[in-house]
């Protein structure tokens, strides 16, 4: 049977596509829906599973980041450190079967090691955030120190967003560009909450392309 693409991103019902601006304008914060990506959760104890590092590198072309709170990657494929034996592998591949395919790739590559690779591509929404006020606005939602000296490009931090909603924050560059990964059922909460934080910071938000 041919798989038909009926997919909807978690924020689909907000109709963001029609609200996209070309640039930030006067807005202090730009927000975007990053759309579909392949996302895998990987659990493996690199210290105990001899050769697992190499297996991953062979399969994906880069090494798993072992420094806490960092990411590593190559060509649109990256791994975010989530814990001492846990990573989130993200591939910028929006094909409907991307999650399944990359799951197979990583599973195959890690065969023989005690590990768990799970497809969670549908479980998260990815919200992009940028703009000169992005850090100030986020300091209203998360208890982390968002100062450029404290949250640097390439870093990944998990924390609590608003009231008891988990978030994975990945700072891609110093401009700043953030990727926020939140569980899909919380996506609208995070989106609206951020806009309210911007109001509290006395700035506007603009919807930007993913």
């Amino acid at each position: 049977m041919v798989e038909v693409n009926y997919r909807q991103v978690p924020l689909a019902h907000l109709g963001l596509a029609s609200k996209i601006e070309d640039s930030l304008g006067d807005a202090g914060v730009g927000m975007s829906d990053r759309g579909f990506r392949a996302i895998l959760n990987l659990r493996v104890d690199l210290a105990k599973q001899a050769g697992a590092r190499e297996s991953f590198e062979k399969a994906m072309g880069f090494t798993l980041p072992e420094t806490p709170n960092t990411a590593n990657g190559k060509d649109g494929t990256e791994a975010l450190w989530l814990g001492p034996n846990e990573w989130q592998v993200v591939v910028d591949d929006n094909a409907p079967d991307a999650g399944t395919r990359w799951l197979q790739t990583v599973r195959q590559g890690m065969r023989g090691h005690f590990c768990a690779v799970v497809d969670v591509s549908n479980a998260q929404a990815i919200i992009g955030m940028t703009g000169p006020m992005a850090r100030e606005v986020l300091e209203r939602a998360v208890p982390l120190d968002m100062h450029p000296g404290a949250f640097k490009p390439g870093e990944v931090k998990q924390t609590v967003f608003g009231r008891h909603c988990g978030v994975i924050m990945h700072l891609r560059d110093e401009s700043p560009v953030f990727d926020l990964y939140v569980r899909r059922s919380f996506a609208e909460y995070v989106w609206s909450y951020t806009r309210d934080c911007a109001r509290g910071a006395q700035t506007d938000t603009a919807v930007l392309a993913g």
């Binding site: 806490p68 709170n69 814990g83 001492p84 208890p143 982390l144 931090k157 998990q158 924390t159 609590v160």
Partner: peptide, 17 residues
């Protein structure tokens, strides 16, 4: 709110724990 040094992630606010 306590500041708790997670042995893996570093010092974080108590509401993460």
């Amino acid at each position: 709110m306590l500041l708790i040094p997670c042995p893996y992630c570093g010092a974080r606010a108590e509401n993460e724990f």
